[in-house]
Each structure stands twice: as C-alpha cells, then as structure tokens.
Simulated assay, not measured.
Amino acid sequence: MAEPHAAPVAVGPRVGDETIAFSLADPNRRLVGVELRHELDLPGQDTRFGYDETAGAWTLTLPRPPIRRMEYQLTLYHPDGASETVTDPTNPVLTPGAFGDKSVLGMPDYAAPAWLAGEQAWPIGAELNVSTGVGPVEITVLSPDEPTSRLLVAHDGPEYDRLAALGRFAATMVRHGRVPPFHLALATPGARDERYSANPAYATAMVGSVLPELRRTLGTDGPVVLMGASLGGLAALHIQRRHPTQVAGLFLQSGSFFVPQYDEVEKDFRYYNRIIRYVAAVLRGQGSGRAVPTTLTCGTAEENVHNNRLMAATLRRQGYPATLHEVPDAHNYVAWRDSFDPYLVDLLAKVWADSGTRWGDGGRVRDA
C-alpha cells in the first residue's frame, strides 16, 4: 500500500514570468520546517516554506527578483531540534563557492560568457613567498609567451582563478587582441579578514615588499592594476589611496564599503568599526591622492549595491574616472566572472593604452 501523499508531486524550483517557486517533497512530514538561504537583498520577503498538505511538500513562492541566476541553499529543520543547510536535493545544478557548493536556479535569459570556451590559462611564470610585516604573502604569476611589463594583481587570486576562471579569461582576451599582454599575479589572501579590512600594515606590505618583489622577479616596471571582490575590493582601494603612484587602475567588485546607513547587519564582523572609519574618511575626501581609472561592478540584488553606489559617486566627485556597472546577479564568483567582459576588458585597455607609461616608486598620502 502506498504511503499517504506518496502520489507524484511537483518538486524543484520553477521560474515564472513574475515569480519563482520552490517545492520539496516530504509526504511523511519528517521535517518541521524548511528555509531558503540566499544572498539577495529581498527586504520584507519571508523565506520560510509552508507545508502543503495536499501536495505533501514544503513550498515557497517569491516575486521574481531582478536577476538572471540565483545561488541558494536550503536549511532543513528536524523534529529533534537539529538543522542542516544543504543544496537543494530537487535541483541537480550546482556551482562551487568559497564556502561550499550552492544550488543554482537559472532564469531563461541567462547565458554564460562565450570566452569560457576559449584559451587555456597561461602556465605559471613565477611563484613567490614574500616576507612582510603581516606575514608571508604567497603569489602565483601566470605569464603569456610575449614579453610584457604590465601587471594585474588579483586579491583572492587563487579563488578568482578556480571559481571565476580568471586565468582563462586573461589568456583568451590577450589571444584575441582585446587587451595587450600582461602578467596575472594571483595573491593568496592568508589572514583575509585582517588583511583586507582597510589594514594599513597590509597596504604597506603590498607596496613596500610584494610589488617590488614582483617587479624584480618579472623584470617589469609598467602600470599595475589592482582588482578584488568584497573585502578584496576594499583592500585594493585602500592600497591605491595610501600609495597613489603605485597603482594605475582599480577593478572593484561588490566592494565591502561599509557605512552604518546600509550595513548595520555587518556590525558583528570583527573589523567592522575599522572599515566604517576608513570609508567615512574616503567619503570626506581624506587622502584622495591621485585619481586613477576605476571600474566598480555590483549585483543589482545584493546588499552591497547601496554602498557601492555611494562609493562610485564619491570617487567621481573626487576626480576619479569611476564607473559602476550593476549586473543582474548577487554576491558570488559567477557574478564577478560574468562582469569581466566587457568591464575588466575596457578598464585594462584604457589603463594600458600607452604601453610606454611608467610609474614611479614614491608617494604616500594620509591614512585614507
């Protein structure tokens, strides 16, 4: 005899014109609750599933957010009080992330970038372990066959390469003549939260030790572009403003430019107050230094979009040729990957248009 509610039920996520619907079969009601976990900014939206007795399933329907893909997990609540956060067992589409796999719900209008089918990443040209005042900084450099003095340094570099195919992107864009040849330096974060949270000691380490060692090893003296996402974007901006002659361009993705107005939810983060003080100094114009081409990207549906809008407007007022591009996604590596073309391409082409540009060794501004 069939179990109660064992008849086939509709399960799994479904995308409508105006809504998205989730359903998880539980005909014997072994769970006491299910909740959707995501990184979208959906104020006022309840993400707890309700139980549909007729379908024998937990269900949730939400207004369709302004995105083309959605990464999410489910938290399952058990009768004994235990809970677990898992990928959606009804959805086979997964994506890796810095904190584990997530389920992916693609909208009908989403397409992955064509360059993912392009060139293989360049081989490793150098591996450095640079001693600094904040501990060793490990760098893996991917280098093209052509000689070049240009350098792109990526915070969270190994993660960018593994989760966003940054090495493949670089090789493909150079191969097709979209940008001139350059070295790609993938910086391992180490103590990420401490280093990337507007830490003056880290900025000094990068400019005083890491960049000089990269230049010596690679024989380069050309323009350096810094890039980073989330805290890595904050760290890139912080380095440029403290040492403005060392950085020729910035690519900042979903930067953690916390301000109390928008980011009180982050107040338990250990370095929240340091970031708040630093960002306030930037907003006041302290240490504006030398303005450089700056591109910001941010998801339309992530919490950081509000502070990124504020930062982009602030930088423009201070003379930076800064642009913010909002993309229909959230705070994740695929969103950042999908923004490389055209936004990183355009920035690199602009900064490196004059391959003979040289950058000095001096310069430091006040603490901002």
Rank of each mutant, 00 (worst) to 15 (best):
L344F: 00
R290S: 09
D367W: 08
A117W: 09
P79F: 02
H331K: 06
Y272H: 13
V130M: 09
Y271D: 09
T295N: 06
T204C: 12
L116Q: 13
T294M: 08
V259K: 12
P65T: 06
R178V: 03
L237K: 04
N304M: 13
T220E: 08
L166H: 03
L231S: 11
G50D: 13
Q45K: 13
V32L: 13
H243N: 11
P212H: 12
W352Q: 06
R358I: 12
L310R: 15
G190H: 11
D41P: 01
S355A: 15
L94P: 01
P63W: 10
R14E: 02
L163Y: 00
P96A: 11
F99L: 14
V9C: 07
E18P: 06
L42R: 12
T59H: 05
P63A: 13
G232E: 01
P189Y: 07
V134I: 14
V153N: 06
E302D: 02
L347C: 03
P180W: 06
N28K: 14
T217A: 10
P321F: 04
V327E: 05
P293I: 09
L250R: 10
Y333R: 04
V141H: 03
T314V: 08
A281Y: 00
P293C: 07
A198Q: 08
A335C: 05
E194P: 15
T95M: 11
Y110L: 07
L237P: 04
R30D: 12
E146P: 02
N273R: 15
R69M: 14
T245D: 15
P8W: 01
E194T: 14
L74E: 00
L252K: 07
R241D: 00
K267W: 07
L218F: 02
T295V: 12
G222V: 09
M107Y: 08
V207L: 11
R216N: 13
Q73V: 03
L347K: 07
T85A: 09
L74Q: 02
A2N: 15
A330L: 02
P92R: 09
R175C: 06
G233I: 01
E84W: 08
A111N: 11
G219M: 10
L218A: 02
D367E: 15
